[in-house]
Simulated scan of single mutants.
Amino acid sequence: MASAAFEEIVDTFAFLDDWEDRYRHVIEMGRDMPPLDDALKVPATKVEGCASQVWLVPDVTGETFTFQGDSDAMIVKGLIAILHALYAGQPVAEVHGIDAEAELARLGLNDHLSSQRSNGLRAMVDRIRNVTAR
């Protein structure tokens, strides 16, 4: 079950007819993300498999999952914002039940991201799933 924040993104994408407008929206979402403290940009938080520099800092203390993230590429930072809307605030036990591929397909991302970006997005989802595995 997607969060209300993710459903809002789905609705916005449905409203935006042109992929270039959607692309700009993703970049704006990335700009709205708070920057990650440089002290957290360490090898342990870096996501391997991404063409850009990507860091995810999960918070799995307690029963609710959230994370901070950052990238040196604005489109990727926007993708992090989308993943944040999809996963943040979800119960840790339910993170694995989220079909990220199907949810992201609702946005049409598969058709408009390069293979490198798609691989990076999968690597970010894999990291989220790995840190929430119990």
Rank of each mutant, 00 (worst) to 15 (best):
A4T: 14
G97R: 01
D37Q: 03
A102Y: 08
S52W: 00
L121H: 03
A44C: 10
L86F: 08
V10I: 13
A2Y: 01
L104S: 03
D17A: 13
A2F: 01
L16D: 05
A88K: 01
I82M: 04
G62M: 07
H25E: 13
I27C: 08
T61G: 14
F13Y: 01
M74R: 05
V54T: 07
M33R: 13
A39R: 11
V57Y: 08
R122Q: 14
C50W: 03
G49F: 09
R31P: 04
M1A: 12
I27E: 06
F65N: 07
M74V: 10
Y23H: 15
A39T: 12
E48K: 14
L40S: 09
L40E: 10
L121E: 02
D126F: 03
T12P: 05
N130H: 12
W19C: 01
G97E: 11
A51H: 11
P91T: 08
R106D: 02
A4G: 07
V131N: 06
P35M: 05
E94F: 10
G69D: 08
A85W: 03
D11P: 02
V54C: 00
C50G: 02
D126M: 06
V47G: 07
P91N: 10
Q116S: 15
A123F: 03
Q90D: 02
L83A: 07
L104R: 04
S118T: 14
E8H: 11
L40P: 00
F15C: 06
H25P: 00
V26Q: 00
A100G: 05
G30F: 09
R134M: 13
V10Y: 02
E8P: 01
A14Y: 10
S3Q: 07
R22E: 01
W55G: 00
I80K: 01
V47Q: 05
R24A: 14
W19F: 08
F65H: 08
I128A: 03
L86V: 09
V60Q: 08
V131D: 12
D11R: 14
F15R: 12
A85C: 10
E7M: 11
F6P: 01
S3T: 15
R134K: 15
G78N: 09
E103M: 11
A44D: 14
D32E: 13
G69H: 00
A39M: 00
L86H: 07
V60W: 03
H84T: 12
E8R: 13
E103K: 09
D37L: 00
N119C: 05
A85P: 08
F6E: 01
G89R: 07
P35C: 06
A14M: 03
G120Y: 06
D126N: 14
H112V: 01
E101R: 15
V26T: 14
L113H: 07
G120D: 00
V125D: 02
G30P: 06
V60Y: 06
S71C: 04
W19D: 10
A88S: 15
H84A: 12
V26N: 04
I9D: 04
T45A: 12
E63L: 10
G62V: 07
A39F: 01
Q68K: 11
G49E: 06
A88H: 11
G69Q: 02
R122S: 12
S52T: 04
V76Q: 05
M124I: 05
E103D: 10
N130L: 11
Q90P: 04
L36N: 03
A100M: 09
V95Y: 01
N119W: 07
R24Y: 09
S71E: 04
P34T: 00
R127A: 08
G89A: 06
P35R: 12
R31C: 02
D70S: 10
A81W: 07
A14S: 14
